[in-house]
């Protein structure tokens, strides 16, 4: 059961017979909406003068990306994205913003000149990427509509992470890695008595 069908299940009763059957077009509509959200908020994150605005733009972008994950059939990942990114990382960033609020840069008035090269670089890269994407065939990909329905991934992922012949080892490594990060971060922010 993909998002489009779910979405159409939700939408059509709401809208009743007013709206024609959008079932076939639902993937496209969803895609574009979600894309607009993600891209728009990403742009806001990029150019918002105040960091707080940027942080919230980031949040919206996270949501948009999560939606896109769902559209792609990765249900587990979409929810995990929201939990971890929005519920964890974004909180961290907001705290960071809070704790460094006194910093002048947070008031964020960039010099225009230093933005231009960045934008140019970005634009250039975007152009390059676009060219690269749309020139290639990717081994003959079909539109989404023609793909089979996605299956639920949670169980499969669970099995994948715990199967010795699949991704158990990296999984354990990542947990150690997280531990390291935890310890490291804690160490870095400990109060130093002798600091000036």
């Amino acid at each position: 059961m993909g998002l489009p069908s779910l979405a159409s299940l939700v939408v059509s009763p709401v809208l009743g017979g007013m709206v024609p059957d959008l079932t076939a077009a639902m993937p496209a509509i969803l895609f574009w909406v979600l894309t607009g959200l993600a891209v728009g908020s990403a742009i806001m994150a990029a150019i918002a003068p105040r960091i707080v605005h940027a942080a919230f733009g980031l949040m919206a972008a996270f949501f948009g990306v999560a939606g896109l994950y769902a559209l792609l059939g990765s249900d587990f990942l979409a929810l995990t994205q929201i939990i971890v990114y929005v519920g964890g990382i974004l909180i961290l960033i907001v705290f960071g913003v809070l704790l460094t609020g006194r910093a002048k840069s947070q008031l964020g008035l960039e010099k225009p000149s230093s933005r231009v090269p960045a934008v140019l670089a970005g634009a250039l890269l975007l152009a390059g990427l676009m060219i690269a994407i749309f020139r290639s065939d990717f081994g003959g990909s079909r539109p989404m509509a023609e793909l089979p329905e996605p299956k639920a991934t949670t169980a499969a992922l669970g099995r994948a992470f715990l199967a010795t012949d699949q991704y158990l080892f990296p999984f354990e490594l990542v947990s150690v890695f997280l531990l390291l990060a935890l310890v490291g971060a804690a160490y870095l922010v400990r109060r130093r008595r002798d600091a000036s």
Binding site: L124, L125, G128, L129, I131
Partner: peptide
């Protein structure tokens, strides 16, 4: 970073 990006972009193009 910017320089690196530019380089990559050029390569891609």
């Amino acid at each position: 970073l910017a320089l690196g990006v530019v380089a990559v972009a050029l390569v891609l193009i």
